[in-house]
């Protein structure tokens, strides 16, 4: 891409967000409305609110719990999903049960898991795991089920050993669906991170924001909302980076199918 093209793309990319921020800034500039403080005031409060102790005390623990729960859910979901997807009888046996668990809105798991695991870090990670695991699990089952028969026959003909069959055929073949499940799981994970902290916690972003709201510290509450947005956006960008790297072949394959 030429420098000009890059510039054009950057302009397109940033134009609307810049406009939105500008509009927000101007509309709230002289605001005396208690709930809608001027954006300048919010941004001014950002540094004070988050970067003097709260970052390590609240933000890092939140994100750490999210990542721990999310990664654990990925491992469990992919592991169980490949097992269930490979065995037809097991799949038929478990499908309705899994559909039921997937259909339960994950936040209602918070009160249940509080019974078992109290209100500590373990509970919050458990909540994230138990919410994130379903989309990963069900998509993995779907992906394994849709594996190409011819490819499976090929693997058998060339006498691929079970381990490399799992790595080179099952996992790679199901990876587009696994990624789709992982993407859904990530947004659920962020929701659960916040909810579990709003329910019962002594630290974390969700906890802090609710404290601000209850104490009517409005500009600070706004900084919290912006911070949560930033966390969501950054994690989603990271996810896209990993996904586009891992699924390069899939993007190419789809592209060539569309042309053909």
């Amino acid at each position: 891409m030429s420098a000009l093209g890059l510039l054009r793309r950057a302009a397109l990319l940033l134009a609307v967000p810049a406009l939105l921020v500008a509009a927000w800034w101007l509309l709230t500039a002289g605001s005396t409305d208690f709930f809608w403080p001027p954006l300048s005031q919010i941004l001014g409060a950002f540094d004070d609110t988050w970067f003097h102790g709260r970052f390590t005390r609240d933000v890092l623990p939140s994100v750490g719990r999210l990542l721990a729960g999310y990664l654990l859910a990925l491992v469990i979901g992919v592991g169980l999903g490949t097992a269930i997807g490979s065995v037809r009888t097991l799949r038929a046996l478990l499908e309705p049960v899994l559909e039921f668990f997937r259909a339960i809105p994950p936040p209602v798991l918070v009160p249940i898991l509080m019974l078992f695991a109290g209100i500590g870090t373990g509970m919050k990670i458990l909540v994230i795991v138990s919410g994130c695991v379903w989309p990963v699990l069900l998509n993995t089952v779907e992906g394994v089920r849709a594996l190409d028969e011819v490819l499976g026959d090929t693997a058998r003909c060339y006498r691929m050993r079970p381990h490399s069959r799992y790595v080179h055929l099952v996992l790679r073949g199901a990876s587009p669906q696994i990624a789709a499940g992982a993407r859904q799981a990530l947004s659920i994970g962020i929701i659960l991170m916040v909810i579990s902290e709003m329910f019962a916690a002594g630290d974390g972003v969700g906890f802090t924001i609710v404290q601000f709201q209850r104490g009517f510290a409005i500009p600070q509450m706004w900084t919290g909302i912006i911070l949560l947005g930033l966390i969501g956006v950054v994690l989603s960008l990271l996810f896209q980076l990993v996904e586009s790297w891992a699924l390069r072949w899939y993007t190419g394959l789809r592209g060539s199918e569309r042309e053909g």
């Binding site: 709930f35 947004s187 962020i190 929701i191 916040v194 909810i195 709003m198 969700g206 924001i209 609710v210 601000f212 709201q213 409005i218 509450m221 919290g224 909302i225 949560l228 947005g229 966390i231 969501g232 956006v233 994690l235 989603s236």
Partner: peptide, 14 residues
């Protein structure tokens, strides 16, 4: 899109 909806909870309550 990835801005989590639950971030709006405090605002909604206010």
């Amino acid at each position: 899109r990835p801005i989590p909806s639950v971030a709006l909870i405090p605002l909604a309550v206010l």
